[in-house]
Design a binder for these strands. Sequence first.
DNA 1: AATCTATATTCTTTAATCGGAATATACAGA
DNA 2: TCTGTATATTCCGATTAAAGAATATAGATT
Lengths: 133, 133
Amino acid sequence: MRLVQIYQCLCDETRLRLLNLLLQGPLCVCHFQRVLGEPQVKISKHLGYLRTRGLVRATRRGNWMIYELPPASKRSPELAANLACLQDCAAEQAVFRRDRARLAKMDPTCGPIPVGEAVGDCGCAPRKAVSKK
Amino acid sequence: MRLVQIYQCLCDETRLRLLNLLLQGPLCVCHFQRVLGEPQVKISKHLGYLRTRGLVRATRRGNWMIYELPPASKRSPELAANLACLQDCAAEQAVFRRDRARLAKMDPTCGPIPVGEAVGDCGCAPRKAVSKK
DNA sequence: AATCTATATTCTTTAATCGGAATATACAGA
DNA sequence: TCTGTATATTCCGATTAAAGAATATAGATT
């Protein structure tokens, strides 16, 4: 991947915030919405942008889409270096620290999913026992 | 400086090439023109872009403008980290390697400047003995 | 099948960016 | 002062990017 394409992915505030959260682990869209407080379209489109350029991958789990960074083994040297750099830099800037804090103390619940289903990669858990009457 | 602003400076190919060269040391505009093979306006405008955002500084030496990165002591942690990252990453990509090579074997001459004047920070030297009749 | 929920896509408008032509400025030399 | 050289700026058109409203899709639930 060309270096400039990586920077093009990083040159938008929303995308930086998304990547900052993904550096903590896989997440589903609803988490981003709750942490960033931005409308669904915006989140979804920026995730799509990152996806088509290979900076994130997505897998479906039920209704939810789980986004995650590519595994270390599949990162180009440039991507690996820049993600590491972002990891460090973001730790020093207020917006990103706030987002990380918000994520850390967030209810990992995504929404109603079947009781007893294993917690997903994104940390999703049933919101509550969904009535199975 | 906000992180996103740094990435905005890095998200253009021309600007990346300029910064890649500046990582080798101070340079004047004519060097960029010769190495990149791009028109003067383009070079000048991207340097201006970087300047207004504090990624480079410029000082005039006679007719020439010498551009350089801010001294290490004046770089924010984010800028320092990203310049280091760029330094490493650029070493692996063809465009940047070619530019560095072209710079390395380039005639450091800028153009006719007064004989005997000290070679500038940019490595400029007199093109030839200018007649002082 | 009908509905609900989560997420993605399309469409449109607005705003930002980039490049080039022409022009302006700043300094040097005669 | 006049001219030449190096660089910057202004103006303009073209392209791209971003945001939001509305709509579409995919899977789950009933």
